[in-house]
Amino acid sequence: MTISKSRGHVVINTEECKGCELCIEACPSDVLFLSDKFNTHGYHPSAYKGEDCTGCGICFYTCPEPGAITVFKRWDLMTETAACSHCGGDYKVFHTDEKPEALICTNCLKPVKDSQ
């Protein structure tokens, strides 16, 4: 995976999204859209276009579901990569300036600490 030049990065947990569309409407950069796929609850979840997220976090604070949206700020400053034992990939990127216990895999969102 090439490291994106976007300032931020957003991960939508499709199973927790209820498709209320509030994040899509609130996003100032207009980088979220409603997926045409269904999740298992029958909702069309929200999805990220893949670039141009600024990491402002507005979608996070607009979303009523505690775990549906995760926002990584300062994404462009992340250079280190490491492997995540949860999702099996070897290309996942971790923040390095956070407290170790706060680090999570940017792909599967599971804590890094117990994967190493």
Partner: peptide, 22 residues
Amino acid sequence: SDKLTTTYCPGCGHGVLHKLIA
């Protein structure tokens, strides 16, 4: 079976306030 999402309707204000408090 759904242990990941809240019982709140899509777009409910409770969820947001819950997040702010948490």
